[in-house]
Design a binder for these strands. Sequence first.
DNA 1: TTTTCGACGCAGCAATCGACGCAACTCGTA
DNA 2: TACGAGTTGCGTCGATTGCTGCGTCGAAAA
Lengths: 315, 315
Amino acid sequence: MADEALSAGAVARRLGVAVTTLRTWHQRYGLGPSEHVPGHHRRYTPADLARLEIMRRLTGEGVAPAEAARWARQAPAVLPPDRLGLKARTSTVRDGGGTTIPVGRAGPVARGLARAAMRLDSVTIGRTIADALAADGVVATWEGLLRPVLAGIGERHAATAGLIEVEHLMSRCVSEALASVARAHPTTGPPRILLSCADEEQHSLPLEALAAALAESGVSYRMLGARVPVAALVEAINRTGPAAVVLWSHTRATAGPHQLSALLAVPRRPLLVLAAGPGWRADSLPAGVVRPVDLAEALSLAVAVRDSLDQSAAG
Amino acid sequence: MADEALSAGAVARRLGVAVTTLRTWHQRYGLGPSEHVPGHHRRYTPADLARLEIMRRLTGEGVAPAEAARWARQAPAVLPPDRLGLKARTSTVRDGGGTTIPVGRAGPVARGLARAAMRLDSVTIGRTIADALAADGVVATWEGLLRPVLAGIGERHAATAGLIEVEHLMSRCVSEALASVARAHPTTGPPRILLSCADEEQHSLPLEALAAALAESGVSYRMLGARVPVAALVEAINRTGPAAVVLWSHTRATAGPHQLSALLAVPRRPLLVLAAGPGWRADSLPAGVVRPVDLAEALSLAVAVRDSLDQSAAG
DNA sequence: TTTTCGACGCAGCAATCGACGCAACTCGTA
DNA sequence: TACGAGTTGCGTCGATTGCTGCGTCGAAAA
């Protein structure tokens, strides 16, 4: 029975692509309804839909659309492996553009992630990130996958004043994935490291990445999150007495050096104060503040603090 | 008791449609008298009439007739509230107390959670919440534990202008725990429900609770998160074509009714628009917007949408 | 006799069609 | 480093298709 014949709009909505894209896929790659009379409406059978699902999944993994279409066209025969070889494709295929997010040379996985983000496909986004985190760890995933894609979205958002919903969805998914890593790694001992955003600073994702990296290394920490006023931060330091404090500032507007000075002025000042993020200006930092250049350096510094504390406790 | 058997003309007059339309609805959509011998006159029972009422109301609200018919055909008892202003009751008085520890009578678990929050003890916070979620489910945990504690912290924060770091830490932990529930329950099918905060609205926790409850029920959704401008929300709706949209507003300042009007004005408007949260004023909502009073009602409405759509996809 | 039945057809409207073009990303080349 | 060629997703435009409510007609039911 042809009772379940979906219209073009219904299929587009289900896949998360535009109706025009479906038409383009049909005439460019031959990925259309099996029975279609030119001029008449397209009616997609479940088999046609399955083929399109493959197309969407492969492009979501970063495969070039032309090649993904080649796989999808011979759908019932052989499904390509889930995690296909990244560099396995022939050099005749070029990557194109379309309405996507610039990821530069970050690789096909990043491209697939960007595509999924544009489609607001949170399931694919979450799965992609989780796979990468499990395979490569927090630091590599952050530097090689998450930061490029997030930067691409941010750039595009700044340029076109759109894409806000994409940015939010992506942030949520990244945050969830990082939190999942943190939860999967039980930490030992009391938290001696305090993570906090600067006052009015809304971007906490890099700090969450650091938190996940710390958890991955078995270091326990305390995470305060975004938009922490100086008074609240000082209060938290007084209350918990951390050995190291990481203060994140994403933009220059939130990077008031007085916040760092306030940290150094508490009764029992932390051993180490890290000013992290691109907001801080190196020439205006108070003495005694360290400014890590990237996630890896911040992580190694924090781990060093933990080790030195262990050492002193043992000796 | 077939005491009330209405003829076709009587039903047509009562509904305000032509008699021929009733016949058309019968043979095109199967919306007719439950017992009808071809060639003989149609006799409509009250149950049949109720089904037709739903059909008429939905089409009157702009729903596509074929889809409205699918909804009406399998209308069990879960008909959505017909009118927005069914009672102007001001959603009861919430847990009143809250002078010392604003947890009120939420129970010892809530008191322990509040204490852990004051200590910035994220480990205990996370474990407490996770246990409660596993034991009682999302809805009960939200209403009985999380909402009271969060409300207490918020009240206290508003009163003393302190406790910001506690509030942030608690929010993060709750968010993580809810996300963990969502990840633990794989959902099937494409997401047809869109969750979003109103413009400038920063509180997304209740929406995340709804998301977790949906996941717990096996309903897939799309979560945009906090601070979604109207343009971005409309863009997302156009792109993904959801069947239901939930727009959360926590305070009156973020509850501009024009945002709801914008949702209803998109080319293919959602079947159901929910204005959730205490920000909305019942008397200023556009027609066709439903306002759930609590998490449970929002959940049941969303589930009803899912069921109706499943039916239509299968039929 | 009055009302309804099934069948057929028609006009309005939303969705879709094919064609075309634009903007943006990648990559090879100079 | 800059630039042109190759790709690709999707917006736009005028025309077409298909759904929908309802009027009409001869026959049958009440």
